[in-house]
């Protein structure tokens, strides 16, 4: 939180945030979930390549948002059981914007608690993402490589855009 709100530059913020994210977020798990039924279809190389790309996509998404955020705070509400996971209610308070309510699903099966999903106003991040990916693959002849290429293109695009700034 202190890092997000600090007046550091975007690159510095990103450098400090990413280790925390990988420690507390089950990125591999989310990535596997997002690939859905195509995870089984993908070859081990494709799976590996996909997870590398997925990490980068997530890092980019975080970096995009980090720049916008200053003076944000969280209030943590009730914790309820939701299946195997704990659902944590949280409200994100941003200056000059209406507060956003969300839930984090936290799974502790790996020993340490890790975030596995974020639900914002009823829509699950990982489920929405999974539907995006699987629909994309299905419409491109069920070929996982097309997804990998598209993700790579997104990353290149993002890097090119941030290099220009």
């Amino acid at each position: 939180m202190a890092i997000v709100n600090s007046p550091l530059s975007l690159a510095d913020k990103k450098e400090k945030i990413m280790p925390l994210v990988s420690k507390n977020v089950d990125i591999d798990g989310i990535g596997r979930y997002c690939l859905g039924r195509f995870w089984k279809v993908a070859t081990p190389e494709q799976q590996k390549h996909y997870l590398v790309l997925f990490h980068q996509i997530l890092a980019n998404a975080i970096a995009d948002k980090l720049g916008d955020y200053r003076g944000v705070s969280f209030t943590i509400g009730n914790v309820t059981k939701s299946g195997d996971d704990d659902s944590v209610e949280a409200t994100l308070v941003r200056p000059q914007q209406p507060p956003a309510a969300m839930q984090w699903l936290v799974n502790s099966s790996s020993g340490s608690p890790k975030v596995v999903d974020v639900i914002g106003e009823g829509a699950s991040l990982r489920l929405t993402q999974r539907n995006d990916y699987s629909s994309f693959i299905a419409r491109n002849g069920g070929d996982v490589d097309t997804l990998l290429r598209a993700l790579q293109k997104q990353i290149d695009h993002h890097n090119a855009a941030s290099a220009q700034q």
């Binding site: 945030i17 977020v25 997530l58 998404a61 995009d64 948002k65 980090l66 994100l92 974020v118």
Partner: peptide, 9 residues
């Protein structure tokens, strides 16, 4: 830190 993920959402 988990909050940062929500930023990405």
């Amino acid at each position: 830190p988990p909050g940062t993920l929500s930023n990405a959402t």
